[in-house]
Design a protein around this nucleic acid. Structure first.
Length: 594
RNA sequence: GGGGUCGUAGUUCAGCUGGUUAGAACGCCUGCCUGUCACGCAGGAGGUCGCGAGUUCGAGCCUCGUCGACCCCGCCA
């Protein structure tokens, strides 16, 4: 049995990764974890690890037989403290791969502070299944990748606080336990013990509170804040996630954009990355038209082209069926695709596209002086020529065509575009980080399922003044003062100039069919606040986890969160959520329906 | 709510057309080794093939169900 000892009067003199040749000759006290040991029978080398790195410590029989044999008994991830002498490594045994590779520490005394079971996975192994990693997250966190991610995340949060403070922002906390509001995502509900049959909702975002702070004269607010949404999860969506939330008074959207760009610049600098500012701006309409999505990755081509006019003139029945229902036909041109995309791959793409509700995907191979495709016989020479012209094809290209209603066509082809970029390696030689503003969003959009108008952004977004005249007649034509930041095809921020005029806010509510009574019941407190000197204001919120993940080259936000949840919302480390006992339920007046 | 991929030793994986005793690497254990840093050498232990049914003379492999992880659609103002 290993004897476990207390620290006693031992004090750490420096971190493992900080021992350098400046300390040669000094006695140091180090503490950390046993990473790997190399036992040569005589001399024993151990890599001692802490968050700063690794230093080689040496157990030599020349010091004493006792310390040598105690060194031999150490196992992986034991926690130890050592006192020893720093000396240069013998000539020829330096390790240039290690920052501390010029020196080593000869152990004179050691305390074993704690033992460890053999870890369930190797800490220097890259490819470990996520399930095991999350179950033993505290061990996973000792690995270099997670250490790096957490450190960078820390630096980014600190830089954010520093930067916004310099700019005159106040960090103000807002409640998590809040009122459930009808719009938006599903709420996480918290029963109130003191108020039987009533529930709080965990905030989906501090949206309303930050607006109230503006009415309260805060002028410039920010918060690194947790948000909660009870929706299905993805690799970039966790039930609780972090936003950099900001709001400013007496500003227009250009002011928000400018401060956002500066903030992004500073954050990327913490990771040693330079980004281009100002960001490229693209309107919502243009994004949909050229990329099919409102979060375009503009680092590569493969742009969507509307070929509805050409399709109209062909004899292809499917096209005409789609057109009669008011649909559209769009296409992309895959350079060299006739060769690189086999028939089998094309069939896979068809399956992929069907996942978005599209009926199918047609293809046309472009040859030097002809076109090859099952549907080419329905095209006249002139139509094929126009098609080639619109898409800018050359011999060996492959045209991919989707015909469906506007939304499905754009979404399907836009997603296909991203998939092809990935599959064909189009993202290899592009700039690593491309930030884009998407602007001029519509204020409202029509929901087919709900059969009514809905808010495209959120209910407090200000319409563009010039479009107010359409609010009653053609509400879908009204543009809003909303803006998104898109990073490499992922939405990382969203914001808007808000409505601060009560009458206009009420008019907007009316447009989506909310009655005065309903709005009073649901948002009465905000409408009330707008009565009392609400300044013009606007803001933005950055999805901090997404930003961090992309900046660190991680595929999932789970890898930039210390304790993330699985796709079913389970914490594998703590086994939350769990059942609770009868007493707890009774206090909350809850009966389970099981 | 729906579609898909995966689940075999502690870990990462292989396991052919259903056929003898389920393999490899790393890790782990024992021994040897005084300059390694992916130390080396010799030996060894380690398996509910996620779980449950079914088909079959026989199932890691086929079928159905179920559980879990992941990816996607819907959803996420």
């Amino acid at each position: 049995m290993t004897k476990i000892e207390g620290l006693g009067d031992w004090k750490r003199t420096q971190y493992c990764g900080e021992v350098s040749d400046k300390e040669i000759g000094n006695t140091v006290t180090l503490m950390g974890w046993v990473r790997t040991s190399r036992d040569h029978g005589g001399v024993i080398f151990i890599d001692l690890w802490d968050k700063t790195g690794i230093v080689q410590i040496v157990f030599s029989p020349q010091v004493s037989a006792e310390i040598h044999s105690r060194g031999a008994s150490l196992k992986s991830e034991f926690v130890i403290a050592i006192k020893g002498n720093v000396r240069p490594r013998p000539q020829g045994t330096e390790n240039t791969a290690l920052p501390t590779g010029k020196i080593e520490v000869v152990v004179d005394e050691m305390k074993v502070l704690n033992e460890s079971e053999t870890p369930p996975f190797e800490l220097d192994e890259e490819q470990i299944g996520e399930e095991v990693r999350l179950k033993y997250r505290y061990i996973d966190l000792r690995r270099e990748r997670m250490q790096k991610n957490l450190l960078l995340r820390h630096k980014a949060t600190q830089e954010t606080r520093k930067f916004l403070t310099e700019k005159g922002f106040l960090e103000i906390e807002t409640p998590f336990l809040a009122r459930s509001t009808p719009e938006g995502a599903r709420d996480y509900l918290i029963p109130s013990r003191l108020n039987p049959y009533s529930f709080y909702a965990l905030t989906q975002s501090p949206q309303l509170f930050k607006q109230l702070l503006m009415v309260g004269g805060a002028d410039k607010y920010f918060q690194l804040v947790r948000c909660f949404r009870d929706e299905d999860l993805r690799k970039d969506r966790q039930p609780e996630f972090t936003q950099i939330d900001m709001e400013m008074s007496f500003v227009e959207k250009e002011d928000i954009m400018e401060i956002s760009e500066s903030l992004m610049k500073r954050i990327f600098e913490t990771a040693g990355h330079k980004i281009k500012t100002p960001f490229t701006k693209i309107t919502y309409d243009e994004a949909i038209s050229r990329y099919g999505v409102d979060k375009p990755d503009i680092r590569f081509g493969l742009e969507l082209k509307d070929i509805t006019d050409i399709a109209k003139q062909t004899d292809l029945k499917i096209f005409h069926q789609v057109l009669e229902k008011g649909g559209i036909v769009k296409a992309i041109n895959v350079s060299g695709g006739a060769e690189t995309l086999s028939i089998k791959v094309r069939n896979d793409l068809i399956e992929y596209i069907k996942g978005f509700g599209a009926g199918g995907l047609a293809w046309i191979e472009v040859k030097a002086d002809s076109c090859h495709s099952p549907i080419v016989k329905y095209f006249k020479e002139e139509q094929l020529n126009r098609l080639k012209e619109v898409l800018g094809t050359k011999a060996g290209d492959l045209i991919l065509i989707v015909a469906d209603n506007k939304q499905i066509t754009n979404t399907a082809l836009g997603s296909l575009r991203m998939k092809l970029a990935e599959d064909l390696g189009l993202l290899k030689d592009v700039e690593p980080f491309s930030l884009v503003w998407v602007i001029d969003f519509p204020l409202l959009h029509y929901s087919m399922e709900e059969n009514k108008l809905e808010f495209a952004h959120h209910p407090f977004t200000s319409p563009v003044e010039e479009d107010l005249k359409y609010l009653d007649s053609e509400p879908e034509k009204v543009k809003s003062k909303a803006y998104d930041v898109v990073l490499n095809g992922t939405e990382i921020a969203s914001g808007s100039i808000r409505l601060h005029n009560r009458a206009l806010q009420e008019q907007v509510f009316k447009t989506v069919g909310l009655s005065k009574e309903e709005t009073e019941e649901k948002f009465g407190f905000l409408l009330e606040a707008l009565k009392y000197g609400a300044p013009p204001h606007g803001g933005i919120a950055f999805g901090f986890d997404r930003l961090m993940a992309i900046m660190m080259g991680e595929d999932s936000i789970r890898d930039v969160i210390a304790f993330p949840k699985t796709q079913k919302g389970i914490c594998l480390t703590t086994k939350a959520p769990s059942s609770v006992n009868e007493k707890q339920l009774k206090e909350l007046h809850i009966k389970l329906d099981k």
